[in-house]
Design a protein around this nucleic acid. Structure first.
Lengths: 234, 234
DNA sequence: TTTTCTAAATTGGTATGACCATTTTCGAAA
DNA sequence: TTTCGAAAATGGTCATACCAATTTAGAAAA
């Protein structure tokens, strides 16, 4: 007779550091080509040894997320194609269209929004608001808000506290940037569009902050429907 | 005038160790499941520090060639070729749980059910009904209905007419069969469970046949919620 | 002033040595 | 023979020092 005991898995310190750093990169707080803090500073800030920090960084280097340059520092590496990106593979081999992509996103992200509303803490809301500010800034300075867009949706994914959700979402947005960047840009180039999207993002953020699952789901549904309609009329 | 001078690249010591070890593995001198020499011995044998040896080994661990087991040693890992199942990769590398998997499925499949209700033709409904019969047969003959279960959900995916949806769903169910087959079996071993599931599948099929999107979505939601609750109470 | 060179500061890479955490081993005790 | 516990083996972390490559800044030279 086996009792249903949950497995204890004490994580290695270096793995915890690794996860923190990876999160910074995925969330976009550390942008491509940006320099990482020196190892010595990181060690002091996290109250661990430099050895441990180095192990974590090395892991990210091997995975292609970071890049070492002796005498200069460590930098975030923009990951190019050839990453065995699932979405890209499927889109190509299955001959899927942007419409197909958006349909699947509809299911994934609406559910994610509801989960996020259920579990988001102050920190998650903070990240959502940061991406809103980022997009507002992009609007004022007349730049494209694609980066801020990604940050927002990945912040929603993180708020679900579901690693699989994050992983899959990451694949989607990586593809959006390398696969259909040109198509996506047109969405943001229409005057006033970015303002509308910012408004929709804000509504979603409010619902998540209020822990209103249904409202979050509906707001996300309207948001993605808006995008769907844009690509439909072209 | 630039002469074609080849760049001098003084290799890092840890990289040289890495290459030696990798060579041993590739050549088969270190066979799968075999234990590596202890780090301290390797360091002494190669006249380098244990730190350097560890860096090299860690690199091989990240690449999946070696495997660490604290208190036991480091072992050569047999690498399963052509795995690249997204879900399996994510579940392992991100440390996701069955709960996490089901949560993402909730979003994917509820949406899929609605899309299926919108687009399913006679042939799609036929496939759905075939899987129902298959499950009924499994019940009568006292066999496990896991195969019929997969057939049903893949039939829903096909009915969406969305290649990306099919592709991703395929990955999920492939993983269910190789990754958590044992866990999944318990769901079907409880007396009466398979009957309940068949009933739920039937309800979903009816909604899709009637092209009732909302009913299909709700029926799927109840179905997956049922599965979620089963795994929650264990 | 502008250019050039050199020394210092910065930052990743390696070396030691110690100690911690987990697993196995093996001998003593029951 | 079985059971228990201490010791050994082995990977994980820490602290410190020093090496190697690069950048920076200030002095020296033009």
């Amino acid at each position: 007779m086996t009792l249903p005991l949950k497995p204890i898995r004490p994580k290695r310190v270096s793995d915890q550091v690794y996860e923190q750093l990876r999160e910074l990169i995925f969330r976009g707080e550390l942008k491509p080509a940006e320099q990482l803090m020196p190892e010595r500073e990181l060690a002091e800030a996290m109250k661990v040894s430099r050895t441990t920090v180095r192990n974590a960084i090395n892991k990210l280097v091997v995975l292609g997320l970071l890049e070492h340059k002796q005498g200069q520092g460590t930098f975030v590496r923009r990951q190019e194609a050839g990453d065995k990106n699932v979405v890209a593979m499927a889109m190509e081999s299955q001959g899927a269209s942007i419409q197909d992509l958006l349909e699947v996103r509809m299911g994934l992200e609406c559910n994610a929004a509801a989960l996020a509303a259920r579990r988001a803490d102050e920190k998650d809301v903070q990240f959502l608001e940061n991406s809103l500010k980022e997009m507002a800034h992009a609007i004022r300075s007349g730049q494209l808000a694609t980066q801020a867009d990604t940050s927002f949706h990945m912040a929603v994914a993180y708020a679900t506290k579901n690693p699989l959700q994050v992983y899959i979402m990451r694949n989607f947005y990586d593809f959006l940037f390398v696969g259909i960047r040109e198509s996506l840009r047109q969405l943001y180039e229409v005057p006033g569009h970015t303002d509308l999207i910012l408004e929709q993002h804000t509504t979603i953020t409010e619902a998540i902050r209020a822990h209103d699952e249904l409202a979050a789901l509906e707001a996300m549904r309207r948001h993605i429907t808006f995008v769907v309609n844009f690509f439909k009329n072209r």
